[in-house]
Design a protein around this nucleic acid. Structure first.
Lengths: 218, 218
DNA sequence: TAGATTGTTAATCGATTAACAATC
DNA sequence: TAGATTGTTAATCGATTAACAATC
């Protein structure tokens, strides 16, 4: 029922999980409706949490019958600022990009690669998954807002500066660096591989949980 | 001052960041002491949070003079269950492993690769960074507790089952899958690349924040 | 209508921040 | 001692869970 206040960060992360999940249900020609309980069970969270989360977006559930899949997917996408497919750029060596898209198929999640970029001269002319790898300098022309970054650690500061110059505000950072030089106003999500491995070392054997993350949420 | 209760998840994640950071300070031959304020500034958190976090581990700060770097590092490592270097295994194609260790040097974070494993027959005999890539079936012999997983999505369930059989309790999962078959009692941290990219799409241009999440914390 | 599930308010839980006495 | 910073208690903040009236 579209709460006026902005959803908190953990909620936004779950909303994007619902978006992925509902998108898959639609592709699978599943029943036309889902209940908060279904979502909750599949994603391992409480059903009250699902309803509370959905209260931030503009969708009407039907008491007794749940939510219409199509409406829910559209509304989630609208809230997340995704118009149809989410376009994003990726930066890294050609071999990193190839390895990455071997484990992550954007089309499976309703996403689309808007451009591939490398800062290595030897990657000039390379192609990954049928797409040309361009020099990083050209990223400004991509018109993209979100970027996945997996370059060598010593290049991170330069790449962030280049992304900032290209007016890219949002970056998902896979390369682990302790203290990157953070351009003003840029929103960077860090996947801290070493930190997460270390914190796993300490964890008592129990059920799952996420990143993100912090940010990550489960 | 070593609180008896177990530290909450967000705290554990920060403790592992302190461990990385203090480890780097030690390697840099920095001054022999740090104050909670220094840690807080460098990692972008409040200094009260740092002190509260450190109250869970067995270290004594000196009022007016902060913490001894060596003591702090040892105590953090002890709490996290890291004896010297943290050994971990990595699972993925040889090309994925090569790309990964090009952006992430474990030795820089006080970590050590205990073994590399692939489930692809064509990777037999391959080597990455001077280390042999072994068939996944041999992972039981590694004796390792923590594993980084970046295999193809269709292999995820099989690999998780193999890790479970090898008594590995903790996994950091890089491959995005909506609903992996989760072996009982296994602790899995998910880096959800598509979800994080989607939630970045919605984010208003502001300062940084983490993962993973969530789990990630900043 | 009866049954089921939503949307929302109130209660709980947990983590972060503030404040300050203890102390090196 | 005076100055600075720790360790801890209390206050705040925010998110999750529980409960239930509204409603399809």
């Amino acid at each position: 029922m579209s709460d006026t206040t902005r959803a908190p960060e953990p909620t936004v992360l779950r909303l994007s999980r619902y978006h992925c999940f509902v998108g898959e249900l639609l592709a699978d020609a599943a029943p036309a409706r889902v209940r908060s309980r279904d979502l909750a069970e599949q994603l391992g969270i409480a059903e009250e949490t699902v309803r509370r989360d959905l209260s931030y977006i503009d969708v009407e559930g039907r008491p007794g019958a749940g939510y219409d899949l199509g409406e829910l997917h559209d509304s989630l996408g609208r809230y997340l600022g995704i118009d149809g497919e989410l376009a994003f750029a990726a930066v890294g060596s050609a071999s990193m990009l190839a390895a990455l898209f071997a484990i992550f198929d954007p089309s499976h999640f309703g996403m689309r690669v808007a451009g591939l970029y490398s800062c290595l001269p030897e990657d000039a002319g390379a192609a990954v998954a049928g797409m040309a790898v361009r020099p990083l300098e050209e990223i400004g022309a991509s018109g993209v807002g979100v970027t996945l970054l997996a370059c060598a650690p010593e290049k991170v500061d330069d790449v962030l500066a280049a992304l900032d110059a290209a007016r890219i505000r949002s970056v998902l950072m896979l390369t682990p660096v302790l203290r990157p030089k953070h351009p003003e106003g840029m929103h960077v999500t860090y996947f801290r591989i070493p930190c997460s491995l270390k914190s796993l070392a300490s964890s008592t054997p129990q059920g799952s949980s996420c990143c993100a993350g912090g940010h990550c949420g489960d």
